[in-house]
Write a protein that binds this DNA or RNA. Structure first.
Lengths: 175, 175
DNA sequence: CTTTTCCGCCGAATAATCTTCGGCAAGATT
DNA sequence: AATCTTGCCGAAGATTATTCGGCGGAAAAG
């Protein structure tokens, strides 16, 4: 055919998600234990088509991973807490990062606001929380911490594929 | 045999997790896309044995669910924030619960501390955040809110199966 | 307005996995 | 010591994942 040596990246754009992708993502974010046949029926595609799309979504990073969500209490960590850490200069010292090694630490974000870092942790008991606080205060530059212990969790779900569109207009009252 | 009509519950105890269960949970919390054969090899059990254990772990609730974790930015919500809501008397009004209808709201906890409720939200942009704040302030009893916008997320993982045992002794320095 | 190219879907076929089913062995119970 | 229970394994069948060729439809090229 052609002998053009043109090896332009040819990189396809991230290719914005279409309606099918959205439905697939919504379904998988709610339950990843479905067969491609079941997914296909929900979104209106054949199993192979869904398979190919999921493959692409995973490789492109839209789907970060597929995981089993465990019950904190069942694995021995009934105490959930959010910890605000105030650190000097800049929060993300390598030292502070090591706190992430504890399996009790699930999230770690640097934030704009009073705190320089917010952690989500899940502990065995108050004593364990105290120990962790000790570890954090031992980090150079940490000024102080504020802990908020969760009494009840009313909602805890993964990133949803849907986005609210007509913001001012809200879904209240209607139901 | 016996003709005893004794229909005592006979309910088996939750049966504490053994080493095999722990390994299976740890593996599935990291990656639920593995075959039972692969899992079996990791934990030292046959595929059917792993299958049976996973089945039990799911039914008993230790494994809440299996989900695909999506990339916030890819689905159009690059802005993550934690919102502290101060509400009168008690936070958990039915009205406030309706906030959970927004797909932008991922977590909702009542907490002990200054705030009566902490939300984790993921928005499209600051405007969307503003609209959501408006919705929250419109809820009767809400005194105020404090928002912490995440600048960077250094860690974001599901509940880990492992628990730190010898707390005072920490994994630092060693590596 | 055609022709060409590319992309993504479908249906069928194969490969792999899941799931079920006896049978067996170890520990607990009687 | 006999019995019961529990949980494992290997094998077999059912279901699913994955690959493949071919077929449009839309966009780009002519």
């Amino acid at each position: 055919m052609e002998n053009t040596e043109d090896i332009r990246p040819k990189r396809r754009e991230p290719a914005a998600l279409d309606a099918f992708d959205r439905k697939i993502l919504a379904a998988l974010a709610a339950d990843a234990d479905q067969s491609y046949a079941a997914l296909g029926e929900k979104v209106g595609l054949s199993p192979p088509a869904v398979h190919e799309r999921v493959r692409r979504l995973k490789r492109s990073g839209v789907i970060r991973d597929v995981v089993a969500r465990l019950d904190g209490t069942s694995v021995g960590k009934p105490l959930t807490a959010f910890m605000h850490v105030e650190a000097a200069g800049w929060g993300k010292s390598e030292r502070l990062m090591q706190i992430a090694r504890f399996p009790e630490v699930e999230e770690m974000h640097s934030v704009a606001g009073d705190a320089s870092m917010i952690l989500k942790v899940r502990m065995e008991n108050p004593q364990a929380l105290e120990f962790l606080l000790g570890q954090i205060h031992a980090v150079p530059g940490v000024h102080g911490t504020k802990s908020y212990i969760a009494l009840s969790t009313y909602l805890d779900r993964p990133v949803q594929a849907d986005v609210t569109v007509g913001w001012p207009a809200v879904p209240f009252s209607s139901e």
